[in-house]
Amino acid sequence: MKKVLIVDDAAFMRLTIRSILEKNGFEIVGEAENGEKGVQKYKELKPDLVTMDITMPEMTGIEALKHIKEYDPNAKVVMFSAMGQELMVREAIINGAKSFIVKPFTEDHVMQVLNKILII
């Protein structure tokens, strides 16, 4: 089972993502509500995949992505972004995010992205 870490400041989003992923046979090894905790948990849990929100308190998703990538250049991080954050998503891609999912998302979209990333 693939291990996933969910980083999002909205508990609702974490729950939604978790339920989609669990339904599709992923194991959620951890959740974090801001970038800083996300980085910490990444080091702790070594997940196969991270879903990362962009707008978060303490440390943004972009910063967290940079830290995770610095720690593990092979980290697979998928950004979750809302419309209107194109520039931030671009920055995330430049900094090594594997892909991104635009909110509001569908189960189908999320699974497509995650499955593809895990194959690569």
Partner: peptide, 12 residues
């Protein structure tokens, strides 16, 4: 940030 989160969640 709050508005952003509410927007995202409720759109979901």
């Amino acid at each position: 940030r709050i508005m952003h989160t509410i927007k995202g969640s409720s759109a979901m």
